[in-house]
């Protein structure tokens, strides 16, 4: 599948390039932009980024696979990230993860059949004071209880 950046996104990448003395440094921003446009990072995406930033595709691949926030396969519209690190674990993060899996009927890194949700167990998200927490895409939901989580899922479902 061919991949081309939209014109707006090309501009965003150019703006990002202007921040650094080397084009290559914009690769992380470019991968974010691509992920926003395409949903996840494919080989074609990486080839396109390599062409724009004048760097080897293997380097783009190296970066895309090193950092965990670049998805290498499709995720749901709401990518639910559950923190189970110590602070959250002490307050029931593991149980939230199990509850999510049960309620959505999927395992980690799977997507629900309606394409709405996917689950990922993540490391500390820096919200230890509000443990346990999950993040739906970029939005943090802290101080959760099983009931609050259920409501959150229902709300997101309604929003579609």
């Amino acid at each position: 599948m061919e991949f081309k950046f939209t014109e707006d996104n090309i501009k965003r990448i150019e703006k990002s390039i202007s921040k650094y003395p080397e084009k290559k440094a914009a690769v992380m921003d470019a991968l974010y932009v691509a992920q926003e446009q395409n949903g996840y990072i494919t080989n074609e995406v990486m080839e396109e980024i390599a062409k724009i930033l004048e760097m080897p595709v293997s380097d783009v691949y190296g970066v895309a696979t090193f950092y965990t926030m670049y998805h290498k396969k499709p995720v749901g519209k709401y990518h639910l990230q559950v923190c189970t690190n110590v602070s959250c674990m002490l307050k029931g993060g593991m149980e939230l993860l199990k509850q999510l899996k049960d309620e959505l009927g999927i395992e980690e890194s799977e997507v629900t059949s309606d394409g709405l949700f996917s689950i990922e167990e993540v490391e500390c998200m820096g919200a230890c004071g509000g443990a346990p927490m999950i993040s739906a895409n970029y939005d943090y939901y802290e101080n959760l209880t099983p009931e609050k989580l259920r409501n959150l899922i229902n709300d997101l479902r309604k929003k579609g």
């Binding site: 921040k19 650094y20 090193f66 950092y67 965990t68």
Partner: peptide, 27 residues
């Protein structure tokens, strides 16, 4: 002043890894 957005790697809190990350490399 520019913001460089990380992408989920604890090791990039280490100063030299962070510099590699800003340069667009693996951390």
């Amino acid at each position: 002043i520019y913001i460089h957005k990380g992408a989920g790697a604890y090791i990039c809190g280490e100063e030299s890894a962070q510099m590699n990350s800003i340069e667009g490399k693996r951390g």
